[in-house]
Computed example of a mutant assay.
Amino acid sequence: MSNQQDHTLDLSIQRYEPLVSVRWTEHYELELLDQRLLPTQIVMERLTEVSQVWHAIHDMVVRGAPAIGIAAAYGVVLGALNDKAASPLEWLKSVNTHADYLATSRPTAVNLFWALDRMRNRASQLMTVSNIAVASLNELLLEEAVLIHQEDEEVCRQIGEHALSLFHDGMGVLTHCNAGGLATAKYGTALAPMYLAQERGIQLKVFADETRPVLQGARLTAFELQQAGIDVTLICDNMAAMVMQKGWVQAVIVGTDRVAANGDVANKIGTYGLAVLAKAHGIPFYVACPTSTIDLNTSSGELIPIEERHEREITEAFGSRTAPENIKVYNPAFDVTPNEYVTAIITEHGIVEPDYVTSLQDIMKRAALPIAD
Rank of each mutant, 00 (worst) to 15 (best):
A80T: 11
D10T: 13
V20H: 08
H7I: 10
P66H: 00
A67R: 00
G75Q: 12
Q4G: 13
E17Q: 05
V61K: 05
R23M: 07
I68Y: 07
W54M: 01
A85K: 03
M1D: 11
D34N: 10
I70G: 05
P88I: 10
S21K: 12
Q35S: 11
Y74T: 01
Q14P: 06
H7K: 14
Q4A: 13
A85L: 08
N3G: 10
L11D: 09
W24S: 04
H55C: 06
E17L: 06
R63I: 04
E31W: 00
I13Q: 06
V62W: 01
N3F: 13
N3Y: 14
T40W: 09
R46D: 01
H27A: 09
G69M: 01
A85C: 06
L37D: 08
Q35F: 08
V50F: 12
E45G: 02
Q41W: 15
L37C: 09
N82G: 06
A65W: 05
S87A: 10
L81K: 02
V62F: 01
A71E: 03
M44V: 05
L11K: 13
V43K: 10
L19P: 03
S51V: 14
D34S: 08
A73K: 06
A85P: 08
H55P: 05
L81S: 02
I13W: 01
A80M: 15
D6P: 03
I57P: 05
H27Q: 09
H7D: 15
D10N: 15
D6M: 02
Q5S: 00
T25K: 13
W24V: 00
P18C: 12
P18W: 14
R23K: 03
Y74P: 00
R36Y: 10
S87E: 09
Q52F: 07
V22T: 07
H27L: 08
L81Q: 03
Q41G: 13
L9F: 10
E49P: 15
L9Y: 12
E17A: 04
K84A: 12
Q14E: 15
N3H: 11
V76W: 12
R23N: 03
G64S: 09
Q4T: 09
I57Y: 07
M1T: 12
L78F: 14
P88G: 14
M1L: 15
S87V: 09
E26C: 01
H27E: 09
A71Q: 02
L37F: 06
T8G: 08
T25A: 06
L11T: 10
T25N: 08
D6K: 01
W24L: 05
Y16I: 06
